[in-house]
Amino acid sequence: MMVLLTILSLLLGLACGFYDVQNSVITLISGNTDLILYLLMFSVGISIGMHKGIVQKMKEYHIRIFIIPIGIIAGSLLGGVLCSLLVHIPVAQGTAIASGMGWYSLAGSTIGNIAGAQLGSVAFLSNLMREIFSFFIIPFLALKCNNYTCIAPAGATSEDTTLPMILKYTNEETVVLSVLNGIICSFFVPILISFCLGFA
């Protein structure tokens, strides 16, 4: 049901944008995405706050909170290397695209500025796909793998847009790990892109 509503929201938005549908509600929604994101984070905060013993659980994880971001960053970079070999582009460019980890706006614009519009478009689209497909992959991973793995497809978006999906299909403990992962991955996205393109 959640996945279906997600697809519907996206398709409805695409149709409204494509056919240039204008009304006050659409303008209100698309003009206030920052406020909606604040509302979302506030609501996620309430969920975490209502969950007892979460701070103690985080203390128990200690250094292991870095395991998930390490896996995501290493997997993304490795994937970037494989993709560059498959589509015959320099490895430095391939790893830069994969370093976006779902943060399509930043990856698209920075790579576009440094390495050209075509590579920027691939970075934008592939990272956008990562964010969108995460909505559909997370419920599957929650069933077939473990709660932690649900954070992996989300990458850098696990602290905001994909967070409610993780909250819906896992638990508050995983949500806190997801926020921490999102912060760490988001911190590394611009660093990794600059570092990788430095070798191009």
């Binding site: 995501i72 490795l78 980890m101 689209l125 592939s126 796909m129 995460s134 992959i137 793995t149 992996a152």
Partner: peptide, 28 residues
């Protein structure tokens, strides 16, 4: 650029999932 972009989404995402699954299964 859809197919190239799809590859750049699919392979890094699948490898991230695989690595996180293996690492968390072992350590967490």
């Amino acid at each position: 650029l859809g197919i190239t972009s799809f590859l750049f989404f699919l392979i890094p995402t699948v490898l991230s999932i695989l690595l996180v699954y293996l690492l968390t299964r072992h350590f967490m």
